[in-house]
Write a protein that binds this DNA or RNA. Structure first.
Lengths: 216, 216
DNA sequence: TAAAAAATGATAAAAAATTAACAAGTTTTA
DNA sequence: TAAAACTTGTTAATTTTTTATCATTTTTTA
């Protein structure tokens, strides 16, 4: 699929953003766009957009630009959004519930097939059309359904142990919300982190930095 | 405070992670650490750690290393975590509620002082010790309380309009969860984005990429 | 229909970020 | 107490990422 393997992380992280902006253009019924116009909208350089896209192939046409729909589809395909990776959610607390309800998994490559919690009060609750299961059912469930990925919405304290359990059950891909860095015990797992605390701290830094500059 | 202004974004984004790891060392009663040891734990190079820290000053000592507690405090201070920036939360849906309940604002530079929603069914609900207010009360509330930052947990569709409202009320700092890029209408605002969709798409890419490599 | 304008993809240049190397100083060991 | 082992902060080298340039092709205009 890819031109020649190993796309750099910065490029990959920009792809979803391209995808989003192109989606908005589709909604506005715009059919073609040049790297220049897109760069204006997105606050990037046109050069960067062309460079990024050319990691995967020449999707544009000289003198014309890019087909919005065509490029949107291409990027969706590059990201693998046409997959339906089976995901299970660990932790049905506020955060886990929010993720289950808030996200449109089906549009972005996943299907949520199970929700687990070890709190008996949570077991049995319905979220979307799934019933929260006890963590004791994990083994049976995984053997029957072979989930591809796990969404980690558990407290830091239970993260390491739970990771081991899931690793033994064959799960290698993780979306991690716990305030804990997975991925050190095993070198064959993929982890995408959402460190909310870290993000808020960065905002705190930026605010403090701005205020500091004013004072100078 | 800073040695000489303008710290690069990659460095800033690593600071919370250093802070977290140092916090764990404190919990384990470890009092000193070398850049080498820390780099092993964190999966970085020792050189990078020393380089990063030296953006802000020489916190270590030759032959000894760094005082864990001292460095933790320094980084917390650099991040501005000793502030209590007043934050309001917009959107008391699943996601907003999760943020309010899940995060320890007070430990990371903020204080949550108000929650707003435009859904009458949500107004009046208690989250933590705050009662959800109607968005019509925003103006009065802001004039009385002067919040420093807004946490954006609203749907994409209402994001642009709400941003304008808050901008007019003087709010310049945003933590953005909406699937929308703020920060183009105004060049004097600070936005820290948490694009959950984007993050999940990146995971999707990584999984697809790994599978693709296997097939090759 | 011919010239001008516009736009890509590719290559080259520049800038930024990471890693390596090392002098200078501290701690530990024997 | 003297030598060996460590470790930082800094400077240099390397690598990565971003930006600029330009030949080539397409579209638009007159």
């Amino acid at each position: 699929m890819n031109k020649d393997r190993k796309i750099s992380a910065p490029v990959i992280r920009r792809l979803p953003r391209y995808y989003r902006f192109l989606g908005e253009l589709i909604d506005k019924n715009i059919q073609r766009i040049s790297s220049r116009e897109l760069s204006d909208k997105m606050g990037l350089t046109a050069s960067q957009i062309r460079q990024d896209l050319n990691c995967f192939g020449g999707f544009g046409q000289q003198g014309y630009g890019y087909s919005v729909k065509g490029l949107h589809d291409e990027i969706g395909h590059i990201l693998g959004l046409d997959n339906r990776y089976k995901a299970i959610l660990l932790g049905a607390g506020n955060l886990g519930k929010a993720m289950a309800v808030h996200l449109s998994f089906e549009k972005i490559g996943f299907r949520l097939i199970g929700i687990f919690d070890n709190d008996p009060n949570k077991v049995g609750i319905k979220i979307n059309d799934l019933t929260v299961m006890n963590e004791d059912d994990l083994e049976r469930f995984c053997q029957e359904n072979h989930p591809d990925a796990a969404i980690f919405c558990v407290p830091k304290s239970s993260a390491p142990e739970l990771l081991e359990k899931l690793y033994k059950l064959g799960i290698r891909n993780y979306w991690n919300f716990s305030h804990y860095d997975l991925a050190f015990e095993h070198d064959d797992i993929i982890v995408e982190n959402v460190h909310l605390n870290d993000s808020l701290m960065v905002l705190c830094y930026k605010i403090s930095d701005k205020n500091g500059q004013k004072e100078n």
